[in-house]
Design a protein around this nucleic acid. Sequence first.
DNA 1: GTCTATAGCCCGATAGAC
DNA 2: GTCTATCGGGCTATAGAC
Lengths: 199, 199
Amino acid sequence: MQKRHINPPKKIDLVIRAARKLFVEKGFRGVAIPEIVKESGVSVGAIYLHFDNKEKLAQTVYQYTLDQFTEQFSECLAGRETAQDKLSAFAELVFELTEEDPDMMEFMLSACKEIRSHLIIPLCTSDAFTEVQQIVKRGITSGDIKAGNYFLTAISYTGVILRAADLRLQGIIEQPLHDISAELIDNAWSSISAAPLPS
Amino acid sequence: MQKRHINPPKKIDLVIRAARKLFVEKGFRGVAIPEIVKESGVSVGAIYLHFDNKEKLAQTVYQYTLDQFTEQFSECLAGRETAQDKLSAFAELVFELTEEDPDMMEFMLSACKEIRSHLIIPLCTSDAFTEVQQIVKRGITSGDIKAGNYFLTAISYTGVILRAADLRLQGIIEQPLHDISAELIDNAWSSISAAPLPS
DNA sequence: GTCTATAGCCCGATAGAC
DNA sequence: GTCTATCGGGCTATAGAC
């Protein structure tokens, strides 16, 4: 759908990564351009050559992050057949990214809220999240997932998963999510499953 | 525990309310003191007489908001007996506040994340949220709620509820939460309930 | 294309009259 | 206690050398 490349030329990529890291640490308005210069090694002039302004830069960071997530989610879905398996794949990806690339995850979940542009796509209408909604929709049709408003069902599942990721990113959950993912995924699935789980 | 009053003298209250509204709209760093002056009708000097600096003001707003929520939650619990009823009361309060006092709810959920003070209490260790955890803990003991880590169980329930509130505040959910609260509360409870629901 | 230097603006916090 | 006026600092974005 979007034309952006996941691997843009090196310098731009450096700027995006550095900006994302700093946005997560200090918030969009808390980061000054000179800091991005220091973190990325790219000069002010070069940054403004590639991005119209700070806001545009942040939007690019957001789109870059969304694309990254969507691509990884697509890969994770390979070989997953049932709705339950596909949703588990979503949860596992979220948990893995939370541990391995916390900047990315935190930016996706909350740092981006500071960018108040009207043009920005809300997370839950992004490709990966609409795909989750479609998985749920088909799961309802096939009888695996309880009947109901598919959007509400989808956010119930993702609500459990994303809240855990959020609390882990804030340092409130101290264990790696991998250690507790089974319990969380079980809770999330229970919230939307059609049949009671066999004990 | 804390000594703050819920109803401080009028002028301070005006400043807190105005600041919270603006923080939600534009973020902590996006709000200039002169704007708070205009919104509250209280002058710069008066603001700095009562609050050491902008950061302290934000912390006061946060504590004020938490106290407000805790007090209302306590009232809502009156007459609720079972764990399920008590958690429903939590959910209903969140939904009601999301509709009736969106500034308060949005500030509590996310605007406060911008205040990076080390002294700030995370939401889920605040009085109201630790109370939810205790409700869950007792529910596990009594057999109403499935066995497991009580903290993870609590965040699973609240995850469903808070995500719905968040999406409503962002305008992504278009119906008033009251219209869909039954389905959401059912999903949240299913995620942690010990027994399968009777169909 | 890439850099440094700086113009121009706005903000937080204070000083000092009332 | 409350106000207005203002200072000093730090920011974004640009200008202009290389």
